[in-house]
């Protein structure tokens, strides 16, 4: 609750600063609209913004989900097979040297203007952090517990399922916290490169027509969406981590 209060205070202070900056610097509204104007625009364009927010929101969520599943499966395969580690890991590091943003035009070329290239962007951008933090967790199971499970003649897959994965949940959670912030970036970049709907598209459109107030309204909605996503995943991660820790 204290955090919530602090957040509100910081937001209000920021908006006040913004407001007075506009007033005293006498900035035209096509350079920096005042927060009041942005709020008015938000209210009058609510259904338009909502429509685009739903699109971007679904891209983010599907991308996040798919990236998490794919990243987790990769991490488990890497953890269980040394052969996979020697082959796949260098490839993963190499793939990180490739700027994901540069792929966006290609993805649009290959997959068209629909949801898929955006989902794929979000997925690609979170795949590495999820995989790598979960993998680290899986490789750091307390040694004593692993020894015990080996003496018990445990089946490797059951050891994975009952011991290594639960013990790696805090690692996965920290990967997901990063993913919650990265996934929206992926979706927006995807929309900038080529889209007919979504907040990224709306922002470009508004910008092109000097409707900076609408652009700001869309931007603020995006920020709020990202914050809510991060907060929910953080909560989920914390409660899971608490459950798995001594």
């Amino acid at each position: 609750m204290k955090l919530f209060l602090r957040l509100i205070l910081v937001t209000v202070a920021l908006f006040l600063f913004w407001h007075f900056l506009v007033v005293f610097a006498d900035l035209p509204k096509f350079i920096l609209p005042s927060p009041l104007l942005v709020m008015q625009t938000f209210v009058s364009n609510f259904s338009l913004i909502l429509k685009h927010a739903v699109v971007t929101g679904s891209e983010i969520l599907v991308g996040l989900l798919a990236g998490t599943v794919l990243g987790s499966v990769t991490a488990i395969c890497l953890a269980i097979s040394p052969a996979a580690r020697t082959i796949v890991r260098p490839m993963m590091v190499l793939s990180q040297a490739l700027p994901v943003f540069a792929l966006a035009p290609l993805l649009t070329l290959w997959l068209g203007y629909g949801l898929w290239p955006k989902i794929l962007m979000a997925l690609l951008i979170i795949y590495f952090p999820v995989t790598s933090s979960f993998f680290d967790g899986l490789m750091n199971t307390p040694k004593g517990m692993l020894d015990l499970s080996r003496v018990m003649n445990g089946n490797p897959w059951r050891i994975m399922l009952n011991l290594r994965i639960p013990a790696a949940v805090p690692g996965l959670a920290s990967g997901l916290r990063l993913a919650a912030v990265y996934a929206p970036i992926g979706a927006i970049i995807g929309e900038w490169v080529g889209a007919s709907e979504g907040l990224g598209y709306l922002m470009l459109l508004a910008n092109g027509r000097a409707k900076i107030d609408l652009m700001f309204a869309a931007l603020i909605v995006l920020v709020v969406m990202t914050l809510i996503l991060h907060w929910s995943i953080d909560r989920l991660g914390n409660s899971l981590t608490a459950k798995m820790s001594p």
Binding site: M145, S149, N155, N162, A167
Partner: peptide, 18 residues
């Protein structure tokens, strides 16, 4: 295992061997 109860911990061998 911190996420299991005392009884479940006692049953760990059963669980790991299926």
């Amino acid at each position: 295992l911190p996420w299991l109860s005392a009884t479940e911990n006692v049953l760990l061998g059963n669980r790991l061997r299926g």
